[in-house]
Design a protein around this nucleic acid. Structure first.
Lengths: 298, 298
DNA sequence: TAAAACGATCAATAAAAATGATCATATTAT
DNA sequence: ATAATATGATCATTTTTATTGATCGTTTTA
């Protein structure tokens, strides 16, 4: 397949005839004929129906056209990239941060990096849960920073820090718990929590097959799924349930007593969740990506 | 730009040398040199650093390589499509249905279509809200069926039917309302509903700028966002709030008294929501798509 | 009914790509 | 150290490919 052949094909479709296509892309009509013929012979398909005066796309030709358009837009992207690169326009370094990692600690380190390398432009996006690693796989980011959830052997990673996770609940709900369940202090039994929903952050966009990584689920409790930590926090503050939260997000609410940290029997109520810096193992890394990786690496 | 040049470039990157690249793609080394040189001159960039013995990618070369890989995968898609088309493999017709439209009425019409055209393979996906129209724009579907939300002038549509929307609430909550608010029958005042959350289906994946289409929001009430109608139904059945629902989804719950239809003052409590069949205006349509469109059109 | 536009075809020509030989240099192996 | 091997650039030559202009039989348009 030659690009010029595809260009000729598209020109014919869009101008409606071989001749007009020829003038449109500055070639001669026989040249267009040859290009179409070559495509048709190469794949053993009929792109145009020549029975009528004007060439009309066959069903196969229609599918081929749509895909051809995609190909050509990809070509144009590559060509404009080529031209941009000659003018010193670098590709931005794309970082995807898990909401969980938005601590001043981590952000300051990134800010230091930007100050150290002011010529490197950073594209920073945020995501939740597996979504962070998915941006790597979908080539929407070069480096991701997030929890261990959803990693497999395609990912390489290094631990950056840990986030203190704490199990919290609204004081009203806690009181309700104690009046029903029994003891007013000490550890809470798992059974006591069953009637109260656990609020979890989920990624509803993709139904993930493997449920690994959810090591912090209460086995039979009711569960609520929200889309991000802010929604989770809102629900918590309104007393809709209990949840595990990064301490830095709800620190002020803990201090003011709007939320209470609780301790559950046989359940990792507070824990240090590792935050990883992640990249794809088999992908060639840009120089900027390597600089960032080495700078952030502990 | 020639495809062979890009292929040569990628081969060099992946094999590590011009000579090995030559053998890998069955060309000679001078040919590879010429290809790379041509690319470099065309865009006025340096792809490889030749100072060292082995050619190593420059920063520009690295960016160019990543984009080149994408291009080539697009090429392979087109080529395999070409070969498939010759063996009579048609592209499936991709329909995206809003969850709201999953009435037996609509589904039966689609089933009739499949029986009428057994050779046309249908790919059916479902989505929520704007997500349905987005599949069109992202070229993930050929025809969408869903509500009016999020349409703009890129879309062409025709009304298929209407779905009866009804405002419902859990009987316990209704009782609570009446004891607090006053009357035990007749219309409910908007103010009475403020303390009870309205449950809405949202599309959290994309933060949509224009809030048009949400004509059924109570101005100052609390709001809950869930990802689909099933979640909404679950919340309703558990008495978490009130919501507007397609009648066909909760018909049985209304009959059994698990949910109660309510009437709110100055609020379109029950209404007929139009369900549209939607396609992109400027996109060439496949024969299958036209067949489907004409069949479904009232 | 005449004129214009269409696509297919073909021999001739122009352009481009691939080739093989050769060179200077860098890396290995001995 | 030294010989052997491997690397990329260069160039004249050949081969392949693309393009052209002319022409033919149609179909559409005026």
């Amino acid at each position: 397949m030659k690009l010029d052949q595809v260009r000729a094909f598209i020109a014919v479709v869009e101008t409606g005839s071989f001749r007009s296509a020829a003038t449109a892309i500055h070639k001669t009509q026989p040249s267009i004929s040859a290009s179409i013929k070559s495509l048709e012979e190469q794949y053993d398909i009929l792109l145009f129906d020549r029975d009528s005066y004007r060439p009309t796309l066959t069903a196969a030709g229609h599918s081929f056209f749509q895909q051809s358009k995609k190909l050509l837009s990809q070509v144009q992207q590559l060509e404009s990239l080529g031209h941009n690169l000659s003018h010193g326009v670098d590709m931005p370094l794309r970082i995807c941060l898990s909401q969980m990692t938005l601590t001043s600690n981590c952000m300051q380190k990134i800010k230091q990096f930007t100050q150290l390398h002011p010529h490197i432009s950073l594209d920073i996006t945020t995501g939740h849960m597996h979504g962070v690693q998915e941006t790597l796989l979908k080539d929407q980011s070069d480096i991701a920073i997030g929890p261990r959830y959803g990693l497999d052997d395609r990912h390489a990673f290094t631990e950056l820090m840990t986030v203190n996770m704490v199990t919290v609940i609204h004081p009203d709900l806690l009181e309700e718990l104690n009046t029903i369940g029994g003891k007013s202090s000490g550890k809470i039994k798992q059974q006591q929590l069953y009637p109260i929903p656990q609020i979890l952050v989920s990624n509803p966009s993709r139904s993930n097959k493997n449920n690994d990584g959810y090591q912090h689920l209460l086995a039979t409790g009711k569960r609520w799924f929200v889309s991000d930590f802010n929604a989770k926090k809102t629900l918590l503050l309104n007393g809709f349930g209990w949840a595990r939260m990064p301490r830095h997000i709800i620190k002020e609410n803990l201090d003011s007593g709007e939320l209470i940290a609780i301790d559950i029997e046989q359940f990792a109520s507070t824990s240090e969740m590792p935050v990883l810096m992640i990249r794809l193992r088999n992908q060639t890394r840009s120089h900027q990506a390597n600089l960032f990786w080495d700078f952030m690496k502990p």
